[in-house]
Amino acid sequence: MIKELFGGLLVAFGLYSALPLPQIEWKDNTMRYALSFLPLIGILVGGCEYGWLLLAGKLALSSLLYAAGAVLIPVVITGGIHLDGFVDTCDALCSYGDKEKRLEILKDPHVGAFAILWIGVLLMVQLGMFAQVYETPASAKLLCLGYAGARALGGGMIVTQPCAKNSGLAHIFADSADKKTVSHVMLVWELVLAVLTVVLAKGIGVLAIAAYAGFYCFHIRMCRRNFGGITGDLCGMCITVCETLMLLCVVIGGIILR
């Protein structure tokens, strides 16, 4: 059991982070519980974000320099894997094709014009919001938990929702996972993070939880309607948008409490 858990930890960090860790072969026993460790990567990202905010304040950096570093932290730690899902999903949705066409676009390794447009919009919005967080950091502690919460929802999708196709990373992980155990673990993650979020951020924490829950329900319906289920890219889209919603809540909290 310990060996399986450690193997799952290495698989999760090996795929969903860019950290230089030992590579491990993907087998049923190493992938059975791998998704359970996905929120730990979010805790690492959130901790680095909050640490960077404190360091930038100590060094009296400009808000623009802080914001640029804050936008880059998740990309450096994760290798941009969830952003890849975001841009692929934007390309597919903006194609206005049928279900099969959208799934083909998700699989296509090329980047389309809509992907470039929407990743530019996303990063610009995040840059502006991080700059505002630097000026009004009253709710910034939410950064420590928001990235983990986004990954708890994204990972939970894989073991609780039907896959849109019988290939791809989502299908591989869903097929190899102990779905019952992993779904229970993800639920525990979500409940614990929700409680801590309310303790840390009070009313703004409740707003963040509501935003996550509302978008998650909307996203699941969108996936079923437009794709027939979920894929790895669609999970990446969910994680990326939830992170941005969390950042928006931090901005709102900072403005209200300044």
Score class of each variant (00 low, 15 high):
Glu104Gln: 13
Glu104Asn: 11
Glu104Tyr: 01
Leu106Gly: 05
Leu106Phe: 11
Lys107His: 12
Lys107Gln: 09
Lys107Val: 01
Lys107Ser: 14
Asp108Ile: 10
Asp108Asn: 13
Asp108His: 06
Asp108Gly: 05
Pro109Asp: 02
Pro109Cys: 03
Pro109Ala: 04
Pro109Ile: 04
Pro109Glu: 03
His110Phe: 04
His110Gly: 10
His110Glu: 12
Gly112Ile: 07
Gly112Asp: 09
Ala113Thr: 15
Ala113Cys: 11
Ala113Leu: 14
Ala113Asp: 04
Ala113Glu: 07
Phe114Ile: 01
Ile116Ala: 13
Ile116Arg: 00
Trp118Lys: 02
Trp118Arg: 06
Ile119Ser: 15
Gly120Asp: 02
Gly120Pro: 09
Leu122Gln: 05
Leu122Asn: 01
Leu122Phe: 12
Leu123Ala: 12
Leu123Thr: 01
Leu123Lys: 00
Leu123Phe: 15
Met124Arg: 01
Met124Cys: 10
Met124Pro: 00
Met124Asp: 00
Met124Ser: 14
Val125Phe: 03
Val125Asp: 01
Gln126Trp: 00
Gln126Thr: 00
Leu127Lys: 00
Leu127Arg: 01
Leu127Ile: 04
Gly128Cys: 05
Gly128Phe: 07
Gly128Met: 08
Gly128Thr: 00
Met129Pro: 02
Phe130Trp: 15
Phe130Pro: 00
Phe130Asn: 03
Ala131Asp: 06
Ala131His: 07
Gln132Cys: 01
Gln132Phe: 00
Val133Gln: 03
Val133Leu: 11
Val133Pro: 09
Glu135Arg: 14
Thr136Ala: 07
Thr136Gly: 00
Pro137Tyr: 08
Pro137His: 10
Ala138Pro: 04
Ala138Met: 06
Ser139Ala: 15
Ser139Asp: 13
Ser139Pro: 03
Ala140Gln: 01
Ala140Asn: 05
Ala140Tyr: 05
Lys141Arg: 05
Leu142Ser: 02
Leu143Trp: 07
Leu143Asn: 00
Leu145Lys: 03
Gly146His: 05
Gly146Ala: 08
Gly146Ser: 14
Gly146Tyr: 08
Tyr147Met: 12
Tyr147Thr: 09
Tyr147Lys: 08
Ala148Pro: 10
Gly149Asp: 03
Gly149Phe: 01
Gly149Ile: 03
Gly149Arg: 06
Ala150Cys: 06
Ala150Lys: 09
Ala150Leu: 03
Ala150Tyr: 07
Ala150Gly: 14
Ala150Ile: 09
Ala150Gln: 09
Arg151Ala: 11
Arg151Lys: 15
Ala152Phe: 10
Ala152Glu: 09
Leu153His: 11
Leu153Met: 12
Leu153Ala: 10
Gly154Phe: 02
Gly154Gln: 09
Gly154Pro: 13
Gly154Arg: 09
Gly154Ala: 14
Gly155Trp: 07
Gly155Ala: 08
Gly155Cys: 06
Gly155Val: 06
Gly156Asp: 08
Gly156Ser: 04
Met157His: 05
Met157Val: 07
Ile158Val: 15
Val159Thr: 13
Val159Gln: 07
Thr160Ile: 02
Thr160Met: 12
Thr160Gly: 10
Gln161Thr: 10
Gln161Ala: 12
Pro162Phe: 11
Pro162Tyr: 11
Cys163Tyr: 10
Cys163Leu: 14
Cys163Thr: 14
Ala164His: 02
Lys165Phe: 02
Lys165Val: 15
Lys165Glu: 12
Asn166Thr: 13
Asn166Phe: 06
Asn166Ala: 14
Asn166Cys: 06
Ser167Ala: 13
Ser167Pro: 00
Gly168Met: 06
Gly168Leu: 04
Leu169Asp: 07
Leu169Ala: 13
Leu169Val: 15
Leu169Ile: 15
Ala170Asp: 07
Ala170Val: 04
His171Phe: 15
His171Gln: 13
